[in-house]
């Protein structure tokens, strides 16, 4: 089993900011937009180096999404940025009509997704955004796992033509992927090969899955861990290949159980051979205030929870 180590912890939103700084230097069409959350989105370097390509929208997210759609008509590549809550649910109709249905090359890049936003509580902890965005025809949905991967994904989505929802977060977590990785949209990343159970994780849950894999190995269980950074389009081939080998699976995401990664995988598998699947996700509940670690534990999104789920999945195999 491959061992993953890290020398530093960073937030994925800083990976986004670093990616934007690179894009500012390499792609003259990239425009950054923000709805009064410049510091939270780590856009300072981009704005300092490209003030003419930054649009401060104020607290007007609907207008920001509409303007982003308009900017693409002149060949610009706008990154509309805010918290995930305000960049998805609040502006769903704007995204649906002006961006997705209108086939516009808008990148909706959002931070503070999920429970790990922490103390601000449930009003800001969007847990339904993957479901909403995944339901939109033509929308690409990406949830990278660490700083380096978020930076690489940011650069990759600018090169891709079409609407993208890029989701990342606030907590500092281990940086364990390569700094010079090439991000391939829609291509699952094999974290660790195994034979007993497949663990498909996205976003912050990938590191939890890696730790779970080590804990399972100590108990003689050989888990296959796959990072599904792109929830749509889903890498169906990689998922099917893995479950065919292992015979059961766990999906893990910082999101509601309804409509997210686990649902996407279940929709895929049920059309062929169904396998026992356990869901690590928030179970039809809003979040609350607390530290990220407390919340992940209370809502069952830790490595320990993944270990228990993996054992349940294995036990359900015939």
């Amino acid at each position: 089993m491959k061992k993953y180590t890290f020398t530093e912890k960073k937030d994925t939103r800083s990976g986004f900011g670093a990616g934007m700084q690179v894009l500012g230097q390499t792609n003259p069409n990239v425009v950054a937009m923000c709805a009064d959350l410049v510091g939270s989105l780590k856009l300072d370097a981009f704005i300092k180096e490209n003030p003419e390509r930054f649009i401060q929208c104020g607290i007007s997210e609907a207008n920001m999404i509409g303007m982003a759609a308009g900017l693409t008509i002149g060949g610009k590549i706008p990154f509309a940025t805010t918290f995930a809550n305000f960049g998805s649910g609040r502006v769903y109709d704007q995204i649906r009509q002006s961006v997705a249905y209108s086939d516009k090359n808008v990148k909706i890049a959002v931070s503070h997704a999920g429970l790990t936003l922490g103390e601000d509580g449930a009003t800001h902890q969007i847990l339904e955004d993957l479901a909403m965005m995944r339901a939109l025809p033509g929308m690409t949905v990406i949830n990278p796992c660490d700083y380096n991967q978020t930076k690489a994904a940011t650069i990759a989505v600018a090169e891709y033509e079409g609407p993208v929802y890029l989701r990342f977060g606030r907590p500092v977590i281990p940086v364990f992927t390569d700094a010079d990785q090439k991000f391939e949209i829609g291509k699952a990343w094999m974290v660790n090969e195994g034979t007993d159970v497949s663990i498909f994780a996205t976003g912050h849950l990938v590191w939890e899955a890696i730790q779970a894999g080590e804990m399972l190995e100590a108990e003689g269980i050989n888990a296959e861990i796959i990072n599904i950074h792109t929830i749509k389009p889903l890498d169906e081939k990689a998922i099917l290949k893995s479950v065919k080998k292992t015979g059961c699976l766990v999906s893990a995401e910082e999101h509601q159980v309804a409509g997210g990664l686990g649902s996407a995988i279940a929709e895929l598998l049920i059309q062929g051979t169904p396998y026992p699947q356990e869901f690590i996700a928030v179970k039809d509940s809003f979040g609350e205030s607390g530290t990220p670690a407390q919340l992940m534990e209370k809502y069952g999104l830790t490595a320990n929870d993944i270990v228990a789920a993996a054992k349940r999945a294995i036990a359900r195999k015939k």
Partner: peptide, 27 residues
């Protein structure tokens, strides 16, 4: 046609974006 419309209230935002792009492009 350059944008979908029907759900009301969105066209002015789109127009502003297109106008900003024209300025950025020096048009």
């Amino acid at each position: 046609i350059r944008i979908a419309s029907g759900s009301l209230g969105q066209g002015l935002s789109v127009s502003i974006g297109a106008a900003l792009a024209k300025k950025l492009n020096g048009e």
